[in-house]
Amino acid sequence: MDEIIKVKNLEFSYSLEGTKVLKGISFSINKGEIVGIIGQNGSGKTTLVKHFNGLLKPIKGDVIINGKNTKEEEISELSKTTGYIFQNPDDQIFNNSILKEVSFGPKNLKFTKKRIKELVEKALKLTGLSAVKNKQPYDLPYNKRKLIAIASIISMDGEIIIFDEPTTGQDYLNREIVINIIKELKKKGKTIIVISHDMEFIAKICERAIVLKEGRILLDDSVQKVFMNKKVLESTKLKPPQITRLAQKFKRIYDGTLTVEEFFNQMYK
């Protein structure tokens, strides 16, 4: 498998004399993986992923994206490979139509007109915004604006897409839409990184999870194995999804059960 992200002994702090936010982190991610990054606020999740598109540069160690060391690249260059969807859509929306907003990224990357049109249309379709593309972004409620932000990064067609808390402030329907978007991107072979506090969401889409605490990796394993490690999870105050917790109360049921169907099958097959 191709390694698309490689992090080697990464250390980072926001100021010279300040405490280290990342204290020596190493791992790699292969092309096409879906990885969840979990941990409490302040554990360094956002700081870590900001290294993947060059917003932050390591003070020690290296981050290699698609073979390029981020220390030697500009953000504008790295943003061709890594798309980063910020948590708050209102920190980026500025156009008077959704169509223009979603076209902004690919235009900056100087794609051909034909390619921009294609990519934008695909992104709008995937996020279910095609019907409202000529509307003002701020005429839509917050949770729909979050989809606009997602579309405006997807349209840049990066190999890696980072979702920072995509389900906060989302109701059930929109959450399902986000899950669907990620599954579609996975089909296209994109590498996806998700920061989330929503463990059910992580269980539904991720294969692998990295648990961060105070700037260090506590666990890096399959989602099942991570949810089975009660000790570590408890120390970070994270709770596995309901069905997993129920499974862990029964000896006959696998502690890494993630879905209702898996639970049922173990009872009757």
Binding site: R175, E200, P241, Q242, R245, E261, M267, Y268
Partner: peptide, 27 residues
């Protein structure tokens, strides 16, 4: 609205003819 996973489990059991009592949503 989303359906709690525990509720879904009881529904699954009911569909399979294994449960006919009241459901719960709590672990």
């Amino acid at each position: 609205l989303g359906i709690p996973e525990i509720t879904s489990l009881f529904n699954r059991l009911k569909k399979a003819g294994k449960w006919n009592k009241e459901f719960t949503a709590s672990v």
